[in-house]
């Protein structure tokens, strides 16, 4: 069957898609948590304040089965009550703030990378990329000057910086799965 075309997420998703705790994948008090943060930039090098990032990843053992409960609702009031902090759902959703910034608190993925889906006003069809934390055979297959756009920079214990450049000299490598 022919696919339904993509359309931009537009500027007005902010009251509909983000949810409290969307960037907090790691259960509370779970050891070994990491913070990944950075900016989304456009082709002029300006931060993008209206992008929405989604993350999907394996748990530290490499397990990809995920769990429901990212957007938990109260069955009585219908209010968003957020994650219960017990399951690792593997799913994150973070809008960039007015500075074009995002942050994700999670666990190190067992298979080496976090998958990212980028939506934004101005982007007619989402983009996929990956956050790697070190060497990987997949990276070896990329041109050397572009490889580093997929690797998070370790800042200090447990903190990683990963910027996304939609266009320009430092343009991030984006992926197509066919």
């Amino acid at each position: 069957m022919k696919a339904t075309p993509s359309q931009t997420v537009g500027p007005f998703y902010g009251y509909a898609l983000p949810f409290p705790g969307g960037g907090d994948l790691a259960p509370l008090n779970d050891g070994g948590g990491i913070t990944v943060h950075g900016y989304v930039y456009d082709g002029a090098g300006d931060p993008v304040p209206d992008a929405l990032l989604e993350f999907w990843q394996a748990d530290p053992s490499g397990d990809l089965s995920g769990a429901p409960g990212s957007l938990r609702r109260d069955p009585v009031t219908g209010a968003v009550i957020g994650r219960h902090g017990l399951d690792f759902t593997g799913f994150g959703r973070v809008p960039t703030d007015a500075d074009g910034r995002y942050a994700l608190r999670t666990l190190m993925p067992g298979n080496g990378y976090i998958s990212v889906c980028v939506f934004a006003r101005g982007l007619l069809h989402h983009l996929y990329t990956r956050i790697y934390f070190g060497q990987d055979a997949f990276l070896d297959g990329l041109p050397a000057h572009r490889r580093e756009t997929l690797v998070a920079v370790a800042e200090r214990e447990g903190f990683y910086r990963f910027d996304i450049h939609l266009q320009g000299e430092k343009e991030t490598v984006f992926l197509d799965f066919g």
């Binding site: 082709g43 939609l166 343009e171 799965f177």
Partner: peptide
């Protein structure tokens, strides 16, 4: 769609198989 001008990659996407 004016907002697309600075917000699309110019490099081809990398195929993942």
């Amino acid at each position: 769609y004016r907002s697309s001008v600075l917000r699309h990659p110019k490099q081809p996407l990398i195929m993942v198989k």
